[in-house]
Amino acid sequence: MIPAAFDYVRAGSVEEALAALAEHGDDAKLMAGGHSLIPLMRYRLVTPGVVVDVGNLNGDLRGISVADGTVRVGALTRHSELEHSAELADACPMLAHVASMVGDPAVRHRGTLGGSLAHADPASDLPAAVLALGATLVARGPGGEREIAAADFFTGFLESVLADDEMLTEIRLPVSGGGWNYQKFNRRAQDWAIVGVAVAENAKGVSLVNMGSTPMRATAVEQAVAAGASAVDAAALAADNASPPSDLNGDAEYRGHLARVLTERALKAAGIA
């Protein structure tokens, strides 16, 4: 399977990328590692007229730093860099761990955090992780920079508040302590989660993978834990506001069941009794 033809712009700077996006509007697609975009283009499910390649913008856009209680991750930081970062293991171990669960090693070498978030796939691991971690996403557009709370970022299936002429540049996360856990249930190790559950900061943040059209917070679970509920009782609420998809791996009802089972496991592993 071969992508349909497109024109190619290799951006030498964020400004160049933004200019190209501004010029081509919704006919353009931004590409970082390409690991979400290229498979869709091969199936011709996506046929952009122009691909704007930002994969080589390293510098500030790639790397991890920790200061003043905040972890800053450049949007082009690759999954394998998250996975192996000693700083991240210290300051936000869940993100490093979740990154190690994405796809397979070859995918992790090329895929980027910003690319994964911008793709906004509810079945992906990292969007749910940043949601649970209470991240702030930094986007640049023609009007300059804006900060978007992860909770406000995802708006629909493969859709986010990111405008056609914006790009993600940085992901900011609070240095996170406390119990955390990530449960991913799939049939093959390389596959997307049938359901996943991320528990961050002693369950201050709990989020679900593949339980709706967007990655989503399990707010009922968070509230129950905050109110002192047991892991078992809190987990029973995991699927309450979800409208999970039905596909070959599981129907909506089974996904709801999995969400409850996995949430209980994640809460317990995170130290919630």
Binding site: F185, R187, N249, G250, D251, Y254, H257
Partner: peptide, 8 residues
């Protein structure tokens, strides 16, 4: 024998 089938 998929997980869903077994669980069901």
């Amino acid at each position: 024998a998929t997980p869903m089938r077994v669980r069901r």
